[in-house]
């Protein structure tokens, strides 16, 4: 188990190194002269040279990367010049917290219903129920978040006035969570559902074809027992990975949703940073998201390993 954990964490570190290098290259090297970007077009050459020296921009690329990474790992994330030179770290962490609240709400909505629909569709493969679920997930649910989000706002918020059109982070009150987060979480749920239902259905369909299902049926077990005790145990294993992957997917999806609902999460922060070309802020936010995504994958791997006896954790 420890060995497995160490190897997986090693893998996580490698992944993070590669992705951070990609992000570094994209944000630090491609945009050209950061000094000019920060100091403005009319900055004097001496000021630029001084800025470059101070910020290590005159060093060779790998050195710049190491410096950048060291600063980032030690918590020195710099300041956001677009947000009144506010320190980046508390800002990003606060917004991340808001996004996580939304992500949790989405998870609570989407995971149980998706698994249920996926299992039903799989058990009734190619029957009418399956076709209805498939059409539902492929059409209504497969739309971009901004489409479903706008439809929800126009009906449930503007039409019926049940929810606010723009959401803000909820407090401790449970009702407040529902009031603020139902609409954005619902539009994220729609997108996730398409994916999770499809994967769950495939898992069930594949598993039902395996010979051990016949063995179980020929023991005289009832249909219910065969499905619950024998089939779902195996069929839902891949779904765990799918859910973790959709956590990462969600982070991408939330960028759009937070914009639709004007929700102050990490996604909004990032689009703002993109619009105003605040690269340090963008770097920090992106690295945070990637870290979360990669960790979710790690947790999925561990869970999968723990629940699946075929993967040995020695």
């Amino acid at each position: 188990m420890t060995g497995f954990l160490i190897r997986r964490i090693g893998l996580l570190v490698i992944t993070l190194l590669i992705t951070s290098a990609v992000i570094f290259l994209l944000t630090q090297v491609l945009p050209g002269d950061t000094a000019r970007l920060v100091l403005g077009r009319d900055a004097r050459p001496e000021a630029i040279a001084q800025f470059r020296a101070e910020n290590g921009l005159d060093l060779p690329l790998p050195m710049q990367y190491v410096n950048w990474l060291t600063r980032f790992v030690t918590g020195d994330w710099g300041t956001a010049f677009t947000v009144g030179n506010a320190p980046i770290r508390p800002l990003v962490l606060e917004r991340l917290g808001n996004s996580l609240k939304l992500a949790i709400m989405t998870g609570l909505f989407s995971v149980p219903i998706s698994i249920l629909l996926g299992v039903i569709a799989g058990l009734r493969e190619n029957k009418r129920t399956d076709v209805i679920i498939s059409v539902f997930t492929l059409s209504v649910v497969g739309l971009p978040e901004f489409v479903t989000g706008l439809i929800l706002i126009n009906t449930l918020a503007l039409g019926l006035d049940w929810f606010p059109t723009a959401s803000s982070p909820p407090g401790a009150d449970i009702l407040d969570w529902f009031r603020q987060l139902t609409l954005p979480a619902l539009s994220a749920t729609f997108v996730l559902m398409a994916y999770i239902v499809r994967m769950t259905r495939a898992g069930v369909v594949d598993e039902l074809k395996k010979p051990y299902v016949r063995t179980a049926a020929l023991k005289g077990l009832s249909y219910r027992t065969v499905i619950v005790r024998h089939v779902l145990r195996n069929a839902l294993l891949p779904t765990i990975t799918v859910i973790a992957l959709s956590f990462g997917w969600m982070v991408g999806g939330l960028i759009v949703i937070e914009n639709v609902f004007n929700y102050p999460g990490l996604g909004r922060l990032m689009t703002g940073a993109v619009e105003r070309k605040d690269l340090p802020l963008l770097q920090a936010s992106v690295m945070m998201v990637i870290f979360f995504f990669a960790s979710a994958n790690l947790i999925a791997d561990l869970l999968y390993g723990l629940l699946n006896p075929r993967i040995r954790l020695e």
């Binding site: 990609v22 991408g252 995504f293």
Partner: peptide, 21 residues
């Protein structure tokens, strides 16, 4: 491994960063 790492960056996010730059 490199492909896996690229895949571990959420799509829209990478698009955002690249288009920003």
């Amino acid at each position: 491994r490199v492909l896996d790492a690229l895949l571990s960056i959420p799509a829209l996010l990478l698009a955002l960063v690249m288009l920003a730059t």
